[in-house]
Design a protein around this nucleic acid. Sequence first.
DNA 1: GAAATTCTTGGCTATAATGCCAAATAGCCA
DNA 2: TGGCTATTTGGCATTATAGCCAAGAATTTC
Lengths: 106, 106
Amino acid sequence: MDAKTQTKYQARAKVIKALAHPTRLFIVDEISKEERCVCELTALIGADMSTVSKHLSILKDAGIVADEKRGVLVYYRLRVPCVLNLFGCIEGVLKANAAAHVAATK
Amino acid sequence: MDAKTQTKYQARAKVIKALAHPTRLFIVDEISKEERCVCELTALIGADMSTVSKHLSILKDAGIVADEKRGVLVYYRLRVPCVLNLFGCIEGVLKANAAAHVAATK
DNA sequence: GAAATTCTTGGCTATAATGCCAAATAGCCA
DNA sequence: TGGCTATTTGGCATTATAGCCAAGAATTTC
């Protein structure tokens, strides 16, 4: 793999890596419906606010979410809705896995 | 987040995590065209064969690829083509990031 | 302007991921 | 059988990630 190819896949991997965490997937799902401030997300997730803030900064750095400060609150929204399409595909993988497991243990 | 919700997002994250590596993205792209044996992939990637084999087992464990042994060779193929749709979305994110960067530094 | 609230960042520890080497396994062929 | 090739697995060192606490920054309100 030459350097250029590697750079290309590294850039892609960075975006996907930003999605590769349960909490961050939850955040994406949640703010896809409606924008949310950090305090709301923190309450929903049930972790330390600093932890949630760091997850948000990873998503923001990858370009997946955008933030806007209004007063004391910072609202996050989904910047690229197409990532939601991924969820359907992933569910398909999980279903296929479950079916394969049943078949293998029959 | 209750336990059930957490389990759901953990399962999704496992699949996405399997994709979240440059080498594994390359593998997915490569075998989407045509099945490949480990030795072919190793040559294309340029890493140790044991490293490539471990990447493949992560993809297989997540249900993204399937393998078939024919003689001494083990061929891998893409099991869920819909993950390819993801690539288009990711490229869109990267392009939006590049555009935003230009706008921010103007 | 002081206090309160929201959010981010730094620092730390614990855990997980990566990639190499070496050894084990499996199938082919002489 | 014995050796050869392809692949997987175990072990280990290095690096990256996660999440908490505490401290800092920004903004509103009293």
